[in-house]
Every structure is written in C-alpha cells, then in structure tokens.
Simulated scan of single mutants.
Amino acid sequence: MIDRLESSLSPGRRVRAVAALVVGLAGAVFVAALWGSEPGPLPGRTHLAFALFTVFCLTWAGYGGWLVTRRVPLFATDRVIAGWIGLVASTVTTAVLAVVAVQRGAGLGLVLVAGGLFAGVALVLVVRAHARRAALLRRKRELTGGAEE
C-alpha cells in the first residue's frame, strides 16, 4: 500500500527529470558560451545576469540529475524542490530586471507585473507541493502506524 502512495518515478516523471537535466545542461552551455563570446568589457550587471542565468540552468540540471538517480518514493519532495527553484529563479530575475529598469529609467511597471505573475505562479506551485507532500506523509504515517519517513 505504501508503494502505491507514490512510486519512485513514473515514466512521465522520469521523462521530465531527464528533460530538466538535458535542458539545464544545454542552457548552461549556451549561456556560458554566449557570455564568453561577448566582445569587449562587459558592465558588472551584465556579468551578474550571465552568472545568475548559468547558476539557474545548472540548478535545474542538478535537480534533474538528482531526480533521475532516486530509487525510493519521494513523497512529493521533487515537487517541493522544483517549486522552490522556480520561485527563487523568478524572484531573483524580477529583482535584477527591476534594478536594470530603474537604472535605465523605463519599463519598471511591466517588469514588476510580469515578474510578479511568474513569482505568483511559482508560489502557488510551492504551496500546492507542500500540501501534497504533507498529505502523502500523513497517509504514510496512518498506514505504518506512526513511523517517520
């Protein structure tokens, strides 16, 4: 019965994990190549943006690699982690873009609306993931007589 609560990885989740790994690595390689091929000296905020995008891509690749190697039921831990990655990435990206918009003197409202939308969706996903994980762990405790994960 516990195995039915949540298997280690369904075929669909395994495909999504491999996609996160491959796309994360490809994105990191692309951003790093673009960063390295820029001619001339770049402003500090441009270096920061390239570094952040590279870190975001490597984080998704690390998440995908971690997920592919799991052989035990995760009880929605993967969803919680993915939600937090998305929330942090959208919030940091919005903050960086807002700073750039203020420095340039244009478009702050659009940046805040779009960034707020992405961050809001990510926050909803985090809350839902935590609720799903709590429900699965509660059900596991019921079935095992109170034993912890």
Score class of each variant (00 low, 15 high):
residue 49 A to N: 10
residue 95 A to G: 11
residue 139 R to N: 07
residue 12 G to F: 08
residue 21 L to C: 03
residue 100 V to Q: 04
residue 57 C to W: 06
residue 80 V to E: 15
residue 45 R to I: 13
residue 15 V to H: 01
residue 1 M to P: 13
residue 103 Q to Y: 04
residue 82 A to V: 11
residue 123 L to H: 03
residue 89 A to R: 13
residue 28 A to F: 14
residue 12 G to D: 08
residue 23 V to M: 07
residue 140 K to E: 14
residue 105 G to C: 03
residue 108 L to K: 00
residue 148 E to I: 02
residue 110 L to P: 00
residue 124 V to K: 01
residue 26 A to I: 10
residue 95 A to H: 03
residue 140 K to Q: 12
residue 39 P to Y: 01
residue 5 L to Q: 04
residue 132 R to F: 06
residue 43 P to Y: 04
residue 101 A to S: 14
residue 11 P to R: 04
residue 52 L to H: 10
residue 16 R to F: 15
residue 114 A to K: 13
residue 89 A to E: 14
residue 21 L to W: 02
residue 112 L to D: 09
residue 149 E to L: 09
residue 33 A to C: 01
residue 40 G to D: 09
residue 3 D to C: 02
residue 3 D to A: 03
residue 8 S to Y: 11
residue 53 F to E: 15
residue 136 L to W: 00
residue 75 F to A: 02
residue 35 W to P: 03
residue 53 F to Y: 14
residue 2 I to H: 09
residue 90 S to K: 03
residue 147 A to M: 03
residue 38 E to R: 03
residue 122 A to M: 06
residue 131 A to D: 09
residue 113 V to I: 12
residue 7 S to R: 08
residue 135 A to C: 10
residue 72 V to M: 08
residue 134 A to E: 13
residue 31 V to Y: 02
residue 62 G to E: 10
residue 17 A to R: 09
residue 124 V to N: 02
residue 60 W to I: 04
residue 81 I to G: 07
residue 108 L to G: 04
residue 41 P to I: 08
residue 110 L to R: 07
residue 142 E to G: 15
residue 143 L to D: 05
residue 12 G to E: 11
residue 82 A to Q: 13
residue 45 R to G: 02
residue 73 P to R: 04
residue 143 L to N: 09
residue 57 C to A: 15
residue 6 E to K: 11
residue 83 G to M: 01
residue 144 T to N: 04
residue 88 V to C: 07
residue 4 R to C: 11
residue 127 V to N: 03
residue 66 W to L: 14
residue 56 F to N: 08
residue 27 G to F: 03
residue 76 A to M: 06
residue 41 P to V: 11
residue 142 E to F: 01
residue 26 A to G: 15
residue 27 G to N: 00
residue 15 V to T: 05
residue 132 R to S: 10
residue 74 L to F: 00
residue 46 T to A: 02
residue 140 K to I: 05
residue 25 L to H: 08
residue 12 G to I: 11
residue 63 Y to D: 12
residue 60 W to L: 06
residue 94 T to C: 06
residue 37 S to A: 15
residue 27 G to A: 02
residue 113 V to A: 06
residue 43 P to L: 08
residue 114 A to H: 07
residue 9 L to F: 11
residue 109 G to S: 12
residue 84 W to V: 15
residue 84 W to F: 07
residue 29 V to C: 01
residue 70 R to N: 10
residue 35 W to I: 02
residue 147 A to E: 05
residue 69 T to D: 12
residue 94 T to G: 01
residue 48 L to Y: 07
residue 90 S to Q: 04
residue 138 R to V: 04
residue 125 L to M: 15
residue 92 V to A: 15
residue 12 G to Q: 12
residue 28 A to N: 11
